[in-house]
């Protein structure tokens, strides 16, 4: 029977949600949470021998130490495969899965598999370093994720070679493997060109990455002492009644609020409606997300010319790239219309 190790976060381990995101790295014997679903799917072919657990914030607070602990645990249990997640569209969890999967393969030669939503942030960071199966964007698709990951995992555990990503139903690793073909490349290219000219369907042999296009840097501010600075955040900081109904995840909206209102921070007080981090510290002092007190002190010293009358907020968790780009573009347009010269953005 093949032996499988599994990595999950504090939520899937049943420790708790954001309030337990500081849960330290630990190793448990056997299957935990989604590991039980994998065990069912594996049947007699494989067993989960070990589950590695770490809180989402705890992992990123000291990734090196946590990776070291994970590698040490795996070196001892010597599994045939490491499965991480599935982490769906999660940011921190997905990145932790990627880091641990990559370390297992690179440091110990253990094949590894992650389940991720194809638009999840960890996909572009780790796709070249570990095998990934696509999943839905939330834990609601757990059943399907396990059903597609388990057979791929067994193949990896047995040391079977990968087929092209499309055939395997995998997220492409992003490199091309050379294969011998009957038709030389020049002929294929001309056939493609002819098909294109005729308006017929054809399939390119090159796929372009979907990461963010580099943005040419904006020109620097010449004279900070004359500049008006604006504050922008994706941290979900809104008046406590959330008058604009900004979503707590997968945002489609943004809003701006007067900085006078933020300075007063009473009737209404400000709080974060962001569902992707524990907001207790920001709720206690919104300056920890939108640093108005610090900026006002610097204005008083003449370091900057002025502070824009509003700060801008949206929620940056589970937000699609399409909405994110639109929101960013709309905020930028407003800032320029209002004569702002530079921006300080904070994000979780």
């Amino acid at each position: 029977m093949l032996r499988v190790a599994h990595y999950i976060n504090q939520f899937f381990a049943g420790i708790g949600g954001e309030d337990k995101a500081d849960a330290p790295f630990e190793v448990r014997e056997g299957a935990v949470g989604p590991g039980r679903a994998f065990a069912m799917e594996f049947g007699d072919d494989a067993e989960i021998v070990q589950t590695l657990v770490c809180g989402d914030n705890a992992f990123h607070a000291d990734p090196e130490a946590n990776l070291e602990a994970a590698v040490a645990a795996l070196a001892e249990s010597k599994p045939d495969l490491l499965i991480a997640g599935p982490a769906f569209n999660a940011g921190r969890y997905g990145l932790a899965c990627g880091a641990i999967a990559a370390a297992a393969t690179e440091k110990l030669g253990i094949p590894a598999l992650i389940g991720l939503y194809p638009e999840a942030p960890a996909v572009d960071v780790y796709r070249v370093r570990t095998v990934m199966m696509p999943t839905g964007d939330s834990a609601g698709s757990m059943k399907d994720a396990v059903a597609s990951m388990a057979p791929m995992g067994l193949r990896l555990a047995r040391g079977e070679p990968l087929s092209p990503a499309e055939e395997d139903g995998r997220i492409p690793i992003g490199y091309r493997k050379a294969v011998a073909t009957e038709v030389p490349v020049a002929h294929r290219a001309v056939e493609m060109l002819l098909a294109k000219l005729k308006g017929e369907p054809f399939e390119s042999e090159i796929s372009l990455p979907e990461g963010a296009e580099p943005v040419p840097p904006a020109p620097a501010v010449d004279d900070l002492g004359e500049a008006t600075i604006a504050l922008v955040t994706e941290g979900g900081l809104v008046p406590e009644d959330n008058p604009d109904r900004i979503e707590s995840s997968s945002a489609t909206k943004w809003a701006r609020y007067p900085i006078d209102m933020l300075r007063a921070n009473t009737d209404p007080a400000f709080k974060s409606i962001h569902a992707g981090y524990d907001s207790q510290w920001v709720d206690a002092d919104p300056n920890r997300m939108v640093p108005l007190d610090a900026l006002e002190a610097l204005r008083a010293e003449g370091v900057i010319g002025g502070i824009h009358d509003y700060f801008y907020a949206t929620t940056g968790t589970g937000t699609t790239v399409t909405h994110g780009e639109r929101i960013g573009g709309e905020i930028a347009k407003q800032l320029i219309a209002d004569g702002v010269q530079a921006v300080i953005v904070t994000s979780t």
Partner: peptide, 27 residues
């Protein structure tokens, strides 16, 4: 998108790698 529109934007975050991936410039 703010930089793209021509305004310099400094991005303060604990997750610098993700900021870079998302296309931020001054991280």
């Amino acid at each position: 998108m703010i930089e793209k529109a021509g305004l310099p934007a400094a991005h303060l975050t604990a997750m610098t790698a993700m900021a870079k991936l998302a296309g931020a410039n001054r991280i």
